[in-house]
Nucleic acid binder design. Structure first.
Lengths: 219, 219
DNA sequence: GACGTGACGACTGTCGACAGTGGCTCCCCC
DNA sequence: GGGGGAGCCACTGTCGACAGTCGTCACGTC
């Protein structure tokens, strides 16, 4: 019997798997904003106990994907156009910090290289959902390359709401996620021009905010 | 019987009250970083069931106050000096956005007024713990006055970790929370000088980071 | 017909119990 | 003396059940 014939077992808890299942169910549009998420119903569907889904739901609540309505009943959350603008301004502030730190980092060149690769991955994709993933992956990578773990964490806490905003106002042909929109960021980093880099990020986010907010209000 | 004779009842759930109790127990130093938080023990102390404290603990975990160790056992979290620096840089980015938005707001003057009052409240206090509260209240107010709800939310998600950093490296005579340190921020806002305001905030945070990181590593 | 009232159903809040899993100790055997 | 199990203990993961609360609907009374 070969050593390779046995792979490590999946040791994730039911709570973690429930969390993942619920998150992707919401993010895939299986549940629409405003929909009521009943604990019993979900527990039945997932085949786990109520307590287990409860913990997963509470997690999603803290992530901002669901919100508490009357008497603790949870609903899928949605964002107003104003909130979308606010959200992207916060994101701009965080990613502005990210580019500043990447530029100041001694590994700036290797970082720029990785970012270029991420941009190319973005232009390869046609499927809208995959494009969105590639876009988010690029921006997450930007934060990670800053080497600031608290920044990464803060960004990820925003991720859920960002996905809501994107999904809610999903005019999928969004030029926001185009390759051309991201190249300037990488170029500014390569040139070590902090002011230009921050300005480019700000503009990128302002454009995205405008786009998704408009799509949200027309929905 | 007067209308006033009956006040509204406290409708908070046991989970919420457990959460509050645990949070203040950790933040007051009742539990030290690294201490193990057993569900059974806590449930016994608080007089509630395990499931209830469990949910509260999970919430604190997402806040970053506790972290999962071996086999899901939770411990009180602590921050490395490097993480303290990172944390305060993120904070600087967020509060930099806050001052920019406050200055751009049409209610800038009334905002500056409220901030002045908050600064004065800070100088009135002698008790260290109360000073810390006043300091955090000032910075939270700054975010709130920006009118950006997402910013407030992002800041509050950092609050737990900030309190850990402050508590962990608690050289209480910290000049960081002095009145003089905060006045320049308000002044820059009053004068509408965006660049100066952002610079002041950055310096404020850099100083605080240096201070608390140093205190953390010597502990 | 409008209003108060009672029953019913659908939720969530909370609890106690069982099961599985590592870590630890102690003992046996080589 | 050292190594390896067996057994015990302290934990967390997961579950099913009970209780309390609110919305709804039908019913009876003025």
């Amino acid at each position: 019997m070969s050593v390779e014939s046995l792979s490590a077992l999946d040791r994730s808890t039911l709570r973690e798997r429930s969390l993942e299942a619920l998150r992707s169910a919401i993010l895939s549009g299986r549940y629409r904003p405003g929909d009521h998420l009943g604990e019993v119903e979900l527990a039945g569907s997932l085949g786990v106990s109520r307590g287990t889904v409860r913990e997963a739901l509470r997690h999603l609540q803290q992530e901002g994907l669901v919100t508490a309505g009357n008497r603790g009943m949870l609903r899928v959350n949605s964002l107003s156009p104003a909130e979308v603008h606010e959200l992207f301004r916060v994101r701009a502030a965080l990613e502005g910090l990210a580019v500043r730190e990447v530029i100041a980092s001694p590994r700036r060149e290797s970082a720029a290289e990785k970012l270029r690769a991420a941009v190319e991955r973005l232009s390869d994709e046609d499927e809208p959902a995959v494009r969105m993933e590639a876009d988010l992956a690029f921006h997450l990578l930007l934060c990670q390359l800053s080497g600031n773990s608290m920044l990464v964490e803060a960004w990820q806490r925003l991720e859920g709401r960002m996905r809501v905003a994107i999904l809610n106002g999903a005019s999928w042909q969004a030029p926001m996620m185009a390759r051309d929109r991201h190249v300037p960021i990488v170029e500014a980093i390569e040139q070590g021009d902090v002011d230009a880099a921050v300005r480019v990020v700000d503009e990128h986010m302002a454009g995205a905010a405008e786009h998704f907010a408009r799509a949200t209000e027309s929905a």
